[in-house]
């Protein structure tokens, strides 16, 4: 739990180089930190600040605005149940109650074994597929209570690990730009940042 690893520091350098101004890489680098540790540690934030020339307070100021960034550990599987209007109309609130009963925790809490954190979330853009939920940001459309129970059994037995990476990993595939293909003209003529 700490600063970015040497490999991730190299990745950070590649990401920073894609932006005309380095601070634009802040949110992507916070994702790198969360992918590394499952949550965003104070040490990682300080390290990111060093890489971008920002104070820890500036890094925290941005980090704390965005819901996906967790500043303390969460379960291996983050279960986000949508209860917004389209899901509410088709049983989203009842689904959340079922998830809470099945896992034995209220929304906002983590099971004692550290496997699951449950959240009651806002619309996740699967409205025609209600009710829906995400596990580590992977979608489950039109999910029934029985379907959720089967999913929990699978997750506990490790049968979905190919499909659902640990919390912190959103995309498993990153943009990579082959040497010589980068145009690099985005910052041409841009005045240096003041302050």
């Amino acid at each position: 739990m700490a600063r970015l690893s040497p490999e991730n520091e190299v990745l950070a350098g590649q990401i920073i180089a894609r932006y005309p101004r380095s601070r634009s890489a802040l949110i992507p680098l916070l994702h790198v930190a969360q992918q590394q540790d499952g949550w965003v540690t104070d040490e990682a934030m300080a390290h990111i600040g060093e890489l971008l020339g920002l104070t820890p307070a500036e890094v925290l100021g941005t980090c704390s605005f965005y819901e996906m960034f967790r500043r303390e550990p969460v379960g291996t599987y983050l279960v986000n149940v949508c209860t917004n209007i389209s899901c509410q109309l088709l049983g989203g609130e009842e689904l959340l109650e079922h998830v809470e009963q099945r896992l034995g925790v209220k929304a906002g809490a983590t099971t004692a074994d550290g496997m699951f954190t449950v959240e009651d979330v806002e619309c996740i853009a699967a409205c025609t597929e209600a009710p829906c939920l995400q596990v580590n940001y992977r979608y489950f459309h039109r999910i029934t209570h029985q379907g959720f129970d089967a999913l929990v059994d699978d997750l506990r037995a490790g049968r979905r690990s190919d499909e659902i990476p640990p919390h912190g990993t959103t995309t498993r595939l990153r943009q990579t730009i082959p040497a010589g293909r980068w145009a690099g003209v985005g910052a041409v003529g841009l005045a240096p940042e003041v302050g």
Binding site: I27, P28, F65, Y66, E67, P178, R181, W182, A183
Partner: peptide, 27 residues
């Protein structure tokens, strides 16, 4: 990018520009 459709000298036209994938964090 690998096919020469983004980046330097797009499709051999002499026109160059980059496209960067960025994602948010919930807001």
């Amino acid at each position: 990018y690998a096919a020469g459709l983004v980046g330097r000298d797009i499709a051999g036209s002499g026109w160059s520009m980059d496209v960067v994938l960025h994602w948010g964090a919930g807001a």
